[in-house]
Amino acid sequence: MPVQLFSSKLFQYLKRDYYLCFYSAAKFHGAGQQQVQRDYVMTDKAFSNIKKSSLDIHFFTTSKWPSKNIVEKKSDAGIFKISSPALTAVDLIHHQNKLGGINRMLAILEELSEELTKNDIEELLSWYPHKCTLQRFVFLLEELEVEEILLKPIMQHLKKAKYFPVLLSPKSKQKAGAVDNEWKVDINVKLESDL
C-alpha cells in the first residue's frame, strides 16, 4: 500500500509531525525518471525503518523542523504532507551521502528545478539553517542553467551572510580547497546527470 494512503492517519495517531521527502516527494512534483522502490519520511522523532514484504520506509529526522515549505496533497485516503520542490531539493543535497551521492540525484534536481518558484525559494530562505547546503543548491542551479529570477533570492541571502568554502560532495576526511566560483563550492566530484 502506498505510504501516502496511510501516512496522515498513522502520524496523527502517533502525534508526530511528518512529511514525505527526498525521492518520495520528488515523484509527486513530477521529478523521478525511475520508479521509487523505497519511501522516505521526515519526522520530528526518530523511528526505526520498516521493511516488510512490499513495504520499505526509511525515516529521517531533522535538527530544525520546517516552519514553511510543507505542501498538502490529496490522495484517495485523504490529505498527506510532502516537502515543496525547494525543500525537496535542499533535503536531497543536504542528505546526499545517505542517498547515493550527488550524481544519483542530479537528474531529479534538474527535473525539480522546473517546479521551483520564487515564492517557494523565498519561504525556504526565511527559516532554512544550513548555509553550506544553500551554497551547493545555488551552485547546482547555476550549473543546470535555471532562470535568474530563481537564483537571485538565494544569491542575495548568501551575500548578506558570511560563508566559507564547502565541498560539493562532503567527505569526512577532506576539506574544501581553493575555489574559483562565487559560491565557494569546491567541485570534488565530476557531475554526470542521467538525463
Results as ranks from 00 to 15, higher is better:
residue 42 M to A: 14
residue 55 L to Q: 13
residue 67 S to L: 09
residue 126 S to A: 12
residue 104 R to K: 06
residue 103 N to Y: 05
residue 59 F to K: 13
residue 46 A to M: 12
residue 105 M to T: 03
residue 71 V to H: 10
residue 97 N to M: 10
residue 61 T to F: 07
residue 50 I to G: 04
residue 34 Q to G: 06
residue 47 F to P: 09
residue 33 Q to T: 12
residue 77 A to I: 00
residue 105 M to K: 10
residue 107 A to N: 15
residue 86 A to V: 03
residue 59 F to E: 08
residue 54 S to D: 11
residue 57 I to V: 13
residue 49 N to I: 09
residue 97 N to H: 03
residue 95 H to Y: 09
residue 56 D to N: 15
residue 106 L to P: 01
residue 63 S to I: 01
residue 76 D to K: 14
residue 89 A to L: 14
residue 120 D to P: 07
residue 118 K to M: 12
residue 101 G to T: 08
residue 96 Q to N: 03
residue 80 F to S: 01
residue 135 Q to N: 07
residue 133 T to I: 10
residue 34 Q to I: 14
residue 123 E to P: 05
residue 70 I to Y: 08
residue 93 I to W: 01
residue 82 I to M: 06
residue 110 E to Y: 11
residue 45 K to C: 00
residue 81 K to S: 10
residue 32 G to W: 03
residue 134 L to R: 09
residue 79 I to S: 07
residue 115 E to M: 12
residue 67 S to Y: 12
residue 64 K to T: 13
residue 30 G to M: 11
residue 94 H to L: 15
residue 33 Q to I: 04
residue 98 K to T: 03
residue 126 S to N: 04
residue 84 S to D: 02
residue 71 V to W: 14
residue 46 A to Y: 00
residue 56 D to R: 15
residue 72 E to P: 03
residue 113 S to Y: 11
residue 123 E to R: 12
residue 56 D to A: 13
residue 91 D to V: 01
residue 80 F to D: 00
residue 43 T to K: 07
residue 27 K to I: 07
residue 124 L to N: 03
residue 94 H to A: 14
residue 50 I to T: 13
residue 92 L to M: 12
residue 122 E to D: 09
residue 57 I to F: 12
residue 48 S to E: 11
residue 53 S to A: 14
residue 89 A to Y: 05
residue 66 P to C: 07
residue 36 V to S: 07
residue 121 I to R: 07
residue 73 K to Q: 09
residue 120 D to L: 09
residue 131 K to E: 03
residue 38 R to A: 00
residue 48 S to D: 14
residue 132 C to P: 00
residue 33 Q to F: 10
residue 73 K to H: 10
residue 70 I to N: 03
residue 27 K to V: 07
residue 61 T to A: 08
residue 38 R to Y: 00
residue 62 T to M: 06
residue 89 A to V: 07
residue 108 I to A: 07
residue 80 F to L: 01
